[in-house]
């Protein structure tokens, strides 16, 4: 066996392993799509019914209309966008202060921020729920959005990034008499595109998939987000798997598209911080 055939063999074996593992990871998704197009009676027939023949596209229109799925979509989108804009803006501003400005108790305050990162969300969720109730904000966008316009994690992430930007550029701007505000908007932000994109994607994903908070602060059908809507759906169509898989597919589609588009930011963000996604 010469060297060439040996590498060829090695590569083929490696591909074989890759394909086997990929099958394990992806088959559940394929099965979800297949089931979502299946008719109800074919699903409950023994023996593998993999291919949906003929495909029941009606499952999707039905899943969309038996619960107000359009409302779930609008709610999730509005809430996620508000979280992204809010968290990126407030985090970037605070990160600039922590990374570039001198003020008393700066490092102590930053340490306090870091310390709270370790506290599980379940601790704050109870008092914050009571606060929403006192504000009469339950079952409104306010309750879904306002508590998550600020993120200690985002502040931490962006501060670390801003510290890596060389100061020379700002010094030049400072000599020209630029204010901190214009240094922030004209020097720091334009240089931070990848970090901002990473944070934006994390926030979007976290918000789009979040479940416990929207579950407790909403109760009308009109205010549910997609994950909570899915839970409601599950309650109503317990055994109608084609319909449930159609709903799950509808819920997963936007996130998978965002992921495909912004892949490199995901990977970079995770290796940078090791956070999010859990």
């Amino acid at each position: 066996m010469n060297r060439h055939t040996q590498t060829l063999l090695q590569h083929s074996l490696w591909y074989l392993a890759l394909i086997a593992v990929a099958a394990l990871m992806v088959v559940p998704f394929v099965w979800m799509l297949a089931t979502s197009l299946q008719s109800l009676d074919r699903v409950f027939r023994s023996g593998l019914q993999f291919l949906p023949i003929p495909p029941q596209w009606g499952n999707y229109t039905k899943a969309w209309t038996v619960v107000p799925f359009d409302r779930f979509f609008i709610n999730s989108t509005v809430v996620a966008l508000a979280h992204v804009v809010g968290q990126v803006a407030t985090s970037a501003m605070a990160a600039y202060a922590f990374a570039r400005l001198r003020f008393p108790l700066r490092d102590q305050l930053f340490l306090l921020y870091l310390g709270t990162l370790m506290i599980p969300a379940q601790v704050t969720i109870i008092p914050n729920f009571i606060l929403m109730r006192d504000f009469k904000w339950t079952d409104t966008y306010w309750a879904l959005i306002v508590p998550f316009l600020v993120s200690t994690f985002g502040t931490f992430l962006l501060r670390q990034f801003f510290l890596t930007i060389p100061r020379d550029l700002e010094d030049a701007a400072k000599i020209d008499g630029a204010s901190h505000f214009s240094i922030f908007t004209r020097v720091i932000l334009p240089l931070s595109g990848p970090a901002l994109a990473t944070l934006a994607i994390f926030v979007f994903l976290g918000s789009w998939n979040s479940f416990l908070w929207p579950l407790i602060v909403t109760n009308s059908m009109e205010m549910r987000t997609i994950p909570v809507g899915l839970r409601v759906f599950q309650g109503q169509y317990t055994t109608n798997y084609p319909l449930m898989m159609a709903a799950a597919s509808l819920a997963l589609m936007p996130v998978l598209i965002v992921y495909m588009l912004g892949q490199k930011y995901f990977v970079r963000g995770i290796t940078l911080t090791g956070m999010a996604g859990t």
Partner: peptide
Amino acid sequence: FFMPVVSSVVAVSLL
């Protein structure tokens, strides 16, 4: 291999 990570836990649990 990374696809399950970005998927919503609720949707994936239904699946």
